[in-house]
Design a binder for these strands. Structure first.
Length: 575
RNA sequence: CGGGGUGUGGCGCAGCCCGGUAGCGCACCUGCCUUGGGAGCAGGUGGUCGGAGGUUCAAAUCCUCUCACCCCGACCA
């Protein structure tokens, strides 16, 4: 490609909107342009990178038996009603009517469409297992998009769906996909990524993993251990460090006038928050809930929902709290109207003694010892506190460290969550009708592209790994007015094209500084420079993006040298 | 959805407080000159100042409403 006619200009200044490095370079480099909040066009440069990434994904999906399909972006509401998600999902599912008034949605994911696609086609266990995948546009009406391609509303996603006859088969394939994902991210050039256990939320069923690029600008909070335990904050199960103090004394009331918050109580009584227990009231579709948790800890609502199998959770108001006999600000799990609420005793307070509310205005109680005092009170035990840095690894008991991450992919074991309501059945060996067992696997292509920049850049622009670079070679001709320069450059350009090497030829009569700056933003792994200075010695210069040193080679050997270097770079990326 | 902020040529901004009919840098066009890290000189093109209404002899500037976009938070299949 000749740069003189290449669409997508490189910008000198950072766009005002951008905070993240990848966002700045994607705009400045001429990769993408924003059309609306969270909605972007891809310029030729961005499209090329996107295609390269998609090709890696395609290869890896095909390598594990994937069969590529295309599914619609516009779905009739019916299939989403079959699974109940039409009503269950919030406004992020964009709903609209067609001319006849029929409800439709813009697909945010394709479980329903995939099941619909195969349910009449699959009827025997002999056809199982199999996997289909798509690389397509999806839409989620995110409450808040940000960070360029990191969090958008319209995006390209690779989604795969596998179908199995039993959970053994599913688990086996799930592990195969996990490996394929690791290869995809490695080949794309990510430097620091991990898979973490995650919550499956509305998606579904059982075990799930998120693939996270560790990045301080990431949106997710992760807890990591050197033993290999990695978990998203939503599912992390760090153990509490330190000893608990235990008292054999009976509960004893203590006046705490006007002290309603943990902080106030602690200052007043001169104790630490971890010596208190607090009562957190929630309303849910299963009624009023009370979580008794250590004063310094927060309730992890994701874990609470998962534990109680509920979907909706919100803080209860004071009036509701009084309704079960509790006094807001001074609440205690003791002496409540037990059939009006469900009490959850969090693992942070199952042992030890605490200061807790006394269910009386302006009064708390000391020596509250749940293991003893809760014996007569109906309750369930659960671990629903939020893990913090320094908690101990649930697997090896070393302290956990905290990190931020960008979610670049996820895999879910769905079970029969979709196949059951959508009646995707097959006949097993015994001739009995059974529901298909499913899993789904997603990768955000644009987000992955941005993350590759986050992991591979310097102050001047992206340093694309050869496997995903928009061009392999950036050919600079310094001073085109010199006939010799022009001839050599044109000759090499033609040679690269003949050899099917992706080359971007800067044939503009720009000064060297401008050419180099633009080349840095475009980030091709190899730069070939033709200049009067070098040509006097019959040489052209070859330089790797991101490295200071360059080599001069005779004009005649430039082509083969470039070919060798590219091969070498690609090989080192294939692991 | 809550809090904060910004809208003025393609991009980045000044002008607004204190009303008088739009300016700077970059980019772009022409010419000269220059060629190893975003040169220089000269001359140009391009904007109903996000939109609507109002106040006024006069509005980018003051008032009201509205839309868009950004940041923090909530949410996130």
């Amino acid at each position: 490609m000749r740069m003189s006619h290449f669409v997508g200009k490189q910008l000198k200044e950072d766009p005002k909107d951008a905070q993240m490095v990848s966002h700045k370079f994607l705009i400045r480099g001429g990769y993408i342009r924003q059309l609306s909040t969270g909605i972007y066009s891809f310029l030729p440069l961005g499209f090329r990178v996107k295609m390269k990434i998609e090709e890696i994904i395609r290869e890896e999906m095909n390598a594990v038996g994937g069969q590529e399909v295309v599914m619609p972006v516009v779905h009739p509401a019916e299939i989403w009603k079959e699974t109940g998600r039409f009503d269950a999902i919030d406004e992020s599912l964009l709903r609209f009517k067609d001319r006849s008034g029929k409800d439709h949605v813009l697909a945010m994911t394709h479980e329903e469409a995939a099941v619909h696609l195969i349910r009449n086609d699959i009827n025997s266990y002999k056809q199982l297992p199999f996997m289909i995948y798509q690389i397509q546009t999806k839409f989620r009406d995110e409450a808040r998009s940000r960070g360029g391609l990191i969090r958008v509303r319209e995006f390209t996603m690779k989604d795969a769906y596998s179908f199995h006859l039993d959970s053994t088969c599913l688990e086996k394939y799930y592990a195969v996909m996990h490996e394929a994902y690791m290869r995809i991210f490695r080949r794309s050039g990510l430097k620091n990524f991990i898979s973490v256990q995650s919550d499956s939320g509305i998606m579904g069923g059982g075990i799930s993993h998120e693939f996270m690029s560790v990045n301080s600008a990431g949106e997710d909070t992760l807890f990591l251990c050197e033993c290999g335990y990695n978990a998203n904050r939503e599912i992390a199960d760090g153990r509490l460090p330190g000893k608990v103090s235990h008292s054999d004394l009976p509960p004893e009331e203590i006046a705490t006038p006007g002290k309603k918050t943990i902080q106030d109580v602690c200052e007043y009584l001169k104790i630490a928050p971890e010596e208190t227990a607090k009562c957190v009231f929630y309303t849910s579709e299963k009624g009023l809930l009370l979580v008794v948790i250590r004063g310094d800890r927060e309730v992890n609502e994701t874990r609470l929902k998962a534990h109680l199998q509920i979907e909706k959770l919100s803080y209860a108001d004071d009036e509701t709290i009084r309704g079960c006999g509790a006094v807001p600000g001074y609440a205690s799990p003791l002496g409540l109207d037990d059939d009006k609420l469900k009490i959850v005793l969090d693992a942070s307070v199952t042992e030890g003694s605490y200061v807790c509310g006394a269910n009386k205005e302006n009064t708390h109680m000391k020596h509250f010892t749940p293991s003893r005092d809760m014996k007569e009170v109906p309750h369930t035990k659960a671990s629903v506190y939020t893990t913090i840095e320094g908690d101990l690894c649930p697997e090896c008991s070393k302290p956990l460290s905290m990190a931020r991450g960008i979610e670049i992919g996820n895999i879910f074991q769905l079970g029969t969550k979709y196949s059951a309501p959508m009646k995707a059945l097959f006949l097993d060996e015994k001739g009995e009708s059974r529901e298909l067992i499913m899993a789904s696997y997603g990768i955000g292509v644009g987000r992955l592209m941005a993350t590759v920049i986050e992991d591979n850049h310097d102050d001047y622009g992206p340093i694309w790994p050869a496997a995903v670079a928009p061009f392999s070679v950036h050919l600079n001709a310094l001073n085109l007015k010199e006939e010799k320069v022009r001839k050599t450059a044109e000759g090499l350009y033609d040679a690269f094209i003949r050899e099917k090497i992706d080359v971007l030829y800067d044939d503009r009569d720009e000064r060297p500084g401008s050419q180099f700056s633009d080349a840095d933003l475009i980030g091709a792994p190899l730069r070939v420079i033709i200049s009067p200075r070098n040509l006097e010695k019959g040489a052209v210069e070859i330089k790797r993006r991101g490295e200071k040193e360059s080599v001069n080679v005779p004009v005649e050997t430039a082509l083969s040298k470039v070919k060798n270097l590219l091969e070498e770079m690609l090989k080192s990326a294939e692991i």
